[in-house]
Design a protein around this nucleic acid. Structure first.
Length: 373
DNA sequence: AATCCGTGGGC
DNA sequence: TGCCCAAGGAT
């Protein structure tokens, strides 16, 4: 391993950077966060891009920056609205931490993004990668980065057939050793772009500007690097969600997930874990209403099965049956149910603005179609 | 160190 | 279709 690192002389690194930048100037994508060096915009884009594909993040980035153009605007907004702008991106903790960090930046840094690693790394949601990305992309400071694209690229360049996690420290040092003296940000955009467009899981080596410097290419190892990791074990379950409607009232009962829960801070229909099997037929509306009545202490009549959908949440594959049911009595205060810290009856104009899990938002659309039809 | 956190694109 | 995985961070 030491030998592969030693092969990367200063001269080879300079050649690598030269070829890389030449390729990048011809093949770079026109992405919105590449049109700015505003550290706030860079920061927002980096958080959105964590575990998220570029194509997904673009529209969110533009909407978010239009509504929250700077740290002060973000810090002044209610968390719930920030989460609504994040809806559909997933990993909602990122949005909450971005918001918390913006408040720290306003309170402790006068609303300006810090330009020192020690100040960035202590912000919630900012780790080693994100701090390095902000420093290099926005401030052109020589801080290394290592993420999915660069990790895959560097493992192949070095020809290391090892699980990525075991050599992270070495890869960080390699990343640092590659840094140019200037235009650090452009270099980082370029290495990530090469990893993203060429050195993918199934690489396009014939298009690669640095294949002659790649040990994996020379040894025919590109398809076995990075090494496969553990096969995920899926858990199949069946859930039930219900839209509860009080008599002669168009409001809807929603609960908010508590901090620490999945979808913390988001609103959702009452849900029941129905069974631990996947391919179960939709239970009868009567069964569902009876179970739900017990759970929330409210008598339910006139249940109707609306639709069933499949979705997955990390390792869970969920079959979700959705019902609409009228309650026997007018709304009254209800105790929060499992996982939630607040329960409310809300008008449609309000639930449009409340942040919800993506699939629950789809159920809202199904409910509207159900009412219309 | 191993797990958790969400969603949608791509194949 | 079913499955992999993406500009990671926190615990």
């Amino acid at each position: 391993m030491r030998q592969e690192l030693a092969d990367w002389t200063a001269q080879n690194k300079a050649a690598f950077r030269r070829r890389l930048l030449g390729w990048y100037s011809r093949h770079r994508r026109d992405l919105p966060w590449r049109k700015t060096r505003d550290p706030y915009a860079i920061w927002v884009s980096e958080v959105m891009l964590q575990q998220t594909q570029v194509a997904t993040a673009v529209a969110y980035f533009q909407r978010f920056l239009q509504r929250f153009p700077d740290p002060t605007a973000l810090a002044a907004a209610p968390l719930e609205e920030v989460l609504r702008y994040w809806e559909g991106l997933g990993y909602y903790r990122r949005a909450a931490q971005l918001w918390e960090a913006s408040r720290k930046i306003v309170g402790q840094h006068g609303g300006r993004i810090p330009d020192r690693f020690e100040e960035l790394i202590v912000l919630p949601g900012v780790g080693r990668y994100t701090a390095g990305a902000i420093l290099s992309l926005a401030f052109d400071k020589p801080a290394p980065i290592l993420e999915a694209n660069t990790e895959r690229l560097y493992l192949r360049l070095l020809g290391w057939q090892v699980p990525a996690g075991t050599v992270k420290q070495h890869l960080w040092e390699f990343a640092e050793s590659l840094l140019p003296r200037r235009n650090i940000g452009q270099f980082h955009q370029a290495v990530m772009e090469l990893g993203s467009l060429v050195c993918r899981k199934k690489p396009e080596c014939s298009l690669c500007p640095v294949r002659t410097m790649c040990r994996a290419f020379a040894l025919g190892l590109t398809n076995s690097i990075p090494r496969r990791t553990n096969p995920p074990q899926y858990v199949a379950i069946t859930d039930v969600a219900v839209a509860l409607l009080p008599p002669e009232d168009e409001r809807l009962l929603l609960g908010r997930y508590a901090g620490g829960e999945r979808w913390a801070g988001l609103w959702d229909f009452p849900r029941l874990a129905w069974c631990q099997e996947h391919q179960q037929p939709a239970p009868s509306a009567e069964q569902v209403c009876q179970r739900l009545s017990q759970r929330i202490g409210l008598r339910i009549v006139n249940g109707v099965h609306v639709t069933s959908v499949r979705h997955s949440v990390t390792r869970y594959r969920i079959l979700l049956h959705f019902y609409v049911a009228r309650t026997a009595t007018a709304p009254r205060s209800l105790a929060p149910w499992q996982g939630t810290d607040q329960v409310r009856w809300v008008e449609q104009t309000e639930w449009e603005r409340l942040p919800m899990p993506a699939w629950s938002r789809r159920l809202c659309r199904a409910l509207e179609r159900h009412r219309a039809g």
